[in-house]
């Protein structure tokens, strides 16, 4: 109870103290409930992570990371699965950076009518809500069949890039809108055009948002199976692609997906948990990178 509340209790009338008791009861109940929610989600996260670490740590070794899969996943390593996933993520990043920059600038700088801005935001949220399997099916129709690429790493990268576009774009938009209006007014007052103002004022102060959003988006994309299973990835028989057409890659999530179906075999099971651990580590790494990257870039923009 704070001091202020105490001072009010000096001369309580009867009905006052009754309603106060009720309020305190509700307050305490709410505190218990919210505390329980926090505890539950932390326990769930910790539980899942420690479960995977305990099961997967045994399979982890240098050979596992640098070796090639053998015996349909029951032995060997996950080198090309890891490289395939990294290639897909890199492609997604290259695809999403210009798209996100363009969308964010149109939304927050070029459009002056509030209604038009809201429409773009709405489209971004709708895109964010599209189930990943739908991305996979659309990708299959467009890239695999219509373009005639067959399964290709490029199709998977593009799909993952489009899938994380809303995350990257919204983060960037928020940062652009946080740029103080006075800077923009001062730059325009000096005679800088809109494009020059974007380059000299808006982007230096908001580019950190692009990287934060990108890393968070990639952390999500790393584990996605649905968009790439029909379009970009196979279980075995691929190394690094040399072209676009008929050039699938191996990937961690699809590897885990297939191994999980054979998990009655103890050797396969061990590899499954090992792969899951590597994937989770990759996702954590990307999420963690987002923090210092954002802080550092922000600082650079401010003290140049």
């Amino acid at each position: 109870m704070t001091n202020r509340e105490k001072s009010h209790t000096k001369n309580p009338s009867k009905s006052d103290s009754k309603s106060r008791r009720k309020r305190r009861l509700i307050h305490e109940l709410m505190r218990l409930f919210t505390g329980f929610c926090v505890l539950l989600s932390c326990c769930l996260l910790l539980g899942i992570v420690s479960f995977i670490v305990i099961r997967g740590l045994g399979a982890l070794s240098v050979d596992f990371l640098t070796g090639v899969m053998a015996e349909v996943g029951a032995s060997g390593g996950i080198l090309y699965q890891l490289l395939g996933t990294l290639l897909l993520l890199l492609t997604a990043a290259v695809v999403v950076i210009p798209l996100a920059l363009g969308c964010a600038l149109v939304q927050s700088v070029f459009l002056t009518r509030e209604a038009h801005r809201r429409n773009i935001t709405l489209v971004l949220y709708l895109l964010n809500g599209v189930p990943s399997i739908v991305f996979g099916i659309v990708g299959m129709i467009v890239f695999v069949q219509w373009f005639g690429w067959g399964k290709s790493w490029l199709a998977g990268g593009i799909l993952l890039g489009l899938m994380i576009l809303p995350t990257v774009c919204v983060t960037l938009i928020e940062r652009i809108q946080a740029v103080p209006k006075k800077y923009i007014e001062a730059a325009r007052g000096l005679g800088l055009s809109r494009a020059q103002t974007i380059r000299s004022v808006i982007l230096p102060q908001s580019i950190g948002g692009l990287f934060t959003g990108l890393l968070l988006g990639l952390a999500r994309a790393a584990g996605e199976t649905a968009p790439i299973m029909f379009t970009a990835t196979i279980f075995s028989g691929a190394t690094l692609p040399s072209g676009v057409k008929e050039s699938p890659v191996l990937s961690l999530p699809y590897h885990i997906f297939i191994l999980a179906q054979d998990s009655y075999d103890p050797a396969t099971k061990a590899k499954l948990w090992g792969s899951a651990l590597v994937l989770i580590f990759l996702v954590f790494l990307l999420s963690l990178l987002a923090l210092p990257a954002r802080l550092r870039i922000h600082e650079e923009a401010n003290h140049l």
Partner: peptide, 20 residues
């Protein structure tokens, strides 16, 4: 934009860019 180069402006609060 050309007009604003010819006609400079000073605001109520000094607007300093976070640079040197």
């Amino acid at each position: 934009d050309t007009l604003r180069v010819q006609i400079g402006m000073l605001f109520q609060q000094p607007v300093i860019f976070p640079k040197s």
